[in-house]
C-alpha cells in the first residue's frame, strides 16, 4: 500500500512538470514575437526591456523554461496584459467562486445520479431503468452552455424566478445562493449522466455476483440486500465522483461564460477575448495542478477503501 502510494506520488511529478511545459509553450505557440504575447502593444521601451529580462527571451528555450518555472514556484504568474495586475491575484479571487460551483454541481449530480443509477439497476429493464438510461444519454450529449441559455430563458426571462447573471457581490448569502442555482444545474448535467451510468453498471456487476443470490436465497429482506450492494459498489461510485469533481473545475469555463459567474472560467473567457496570454497561462496552470492533485487524491483514497487495487 505505502509503496504504491509512494510510486503514485512520484508519477504525479513528471505529469505536473509536463503540464507546466505545455503551459510555458503557450507563449511561443502564439503567432508573432513572444514579447507581444505577454506585453500590451503600447508598452514603453523600458517596460519591454524589463519584461525581456524577466522572461529571458534572449536565452535558450530550456533556460527560459527553468527561469519561468522558478518564478511560478514562487507564486509569480506574470502580469495581465489588459489590467497590469498580477495574475496570481486574479486567479486567487476567482478560484473560490469556481470551487463553490464545482462542489455544488458535483453534489447535485452525485445525489441524483447515485439514486437514479441504483434504482435503475434494481429495476433493470423496467420503465424506471429506461428513464434513467435516457437521462444518462441526454446528460452526456447536451451542450451544457446551451442548457445554461435554456435555463436563463425559462427561469429568468419567462418566469423571472432567478437571476441570470453574476454572483451578487455584497448581496448577502441568500442572493449568492439564488445566483448560483442556475449555473449549478447547468453544470450538473454532464456529471449527472456519467454518474448515473457508472453507478448503474457498478450496481449491476455486484447484483450479478453469487453472494447476492445467496443473500436472497437465505431470505434476507430486500432492503438489507440493497445495503450490501451499495457497500460493494461504493469504491467505484466514489471514484467517479472524485474524477467528475475534477472535470467540473475545468469544465465550468463555458457555463461561467454564459452566466458571467466571476470564477476562473469567466476570467479565462475575458482573457481569450483580450488575447491576454499571461492570464490564460496562469489560470490553466493552476486548474491543471488542482486537477492532477485531485486525481492523485482519488487514486490514493481508492486504495485505502479497496486495498486490492494497489496490488495490480
Amino acid at each position: 500500500m505505502w509503496t504504491y502510494a509512494g510510486r503514485r506520488l512520484l508519477l504525479a511529478i513528471p505529469t505536473l512538470l509536463g503540464a507546466s511545459i505545455i503551459v510555458f509553450a503557450m507563449v511561443h505557440l502564439a503567432p508573432g514575437d513572444p514579447i507581444a504575447a505577454v506585453m500590451p502593444a503600447e508598452s514603453s521601451q523600458a517596460e519591454i526591456e524589463a519584461t525581456k529580462k524577466a522572461y529571458g527571451f534572449d536565452k535558450p528555450l530550456a533556460v527560459q523554461y527553468l527561469v519561468w518555472l522558478g518564478r511560478v514556484a514562487q507564486g509569480d504568474l506574470g502580469r495581465s496584459i489588459a489590467t497590469r495586475r498580477a495574475v496570481i491575484l486574479d486567479v486567487r479571487d476567482s478560484l473560490a467562486n469556481s470551487l463553490v460551483l464545482a462542489l455544488s454541481s458535483s453534489l447535485l449530480a452525485f445525489g441524483i445520479g447515485t439514486a437514479l443509477g441504483l434504482l435503475a439497476a434494481f429495476r433493470q429493464g423496467r420503465w424506471l431503468d429506461k428513464a434513467a438510461s435516457a437521462i444518462a444519454v441526454i446528460g452526456v450529449s447536451v451542450p451544457h452552455y446551451w442548457a445554461g441559455i435554456i435555463l436563463i430563458i425559462v427561469f429568468s426571462v419567462w418566469l423571472n424566478w432567478l437571476p441570470a447573471m453574476g454572483a451578487a457581490d455584497g448581496g448577502g448569502p441568500l442572493a449568492y445562493l439564488r445566483h448560483m442555482t442556475l449555473p449549478t444545474v447547468a453544470l450538473a448535467l454532464i456529471p449527472l449522466g456519467v454518474i448515473t451510468r457508472v453507478v448503474r453498471s457498478a450496481a449491476l456487476d455486484v447484483l450479478n455476483q453469487e453472494f447476492v443470490l445467496a443473500l436472497r436465497a437465505k431470505g434476507l429482506a430486500a432492503r438489507r440486500v440493497f445495503t450490501h450492494v451499495v457497500k460493494n459498489s461504493a469504491p467505484q461510485i466514489f471514484t467517479v465522483l472524485g474524477l467528475q469533481f475534477g472535470f467540473q473545475l475545468g469544465g465550468s469555463v463555458l457555463v461561467e461564460a454564459v452566466f458571467s459567474w466571476p470564477g476562473t472560467g469567466y476570467l479565462l473567457n475575458l482573457a481569450i477575448f483580450q488575447r491576454d496570454i499571461p492570464v490564460l497561462q496562469g489560470v490553466i496552470l493552476v486548474l491543471a495542478t488542482f486537477f492532477v492533485l485531485l486525481n492523485l487524491a482519488v487514486d490514493l483514497l481508492q486504495t485505502l477503501v479497496d486495498p486490492r487495487i494497489a496490488r495490480h
Binding site: 503540464a19 505545455i22 473545475l249 475545468g250 469555463v253 479565462l268 490564460l280 490553466i284 486548474l287
Partner: peptide, 13 residues
C-alpha cells in the same frame, strides 16, 4: 501529461 488537463481546458490552452 495531456491527461493533466480536463479536455475543455487543454483545448482552450
Amino acid at each position: 501529461v495531456f491527461y493533466a488537463f480536463p479536455a475543455v481546458l487543454l483545448a482552450i490552452a
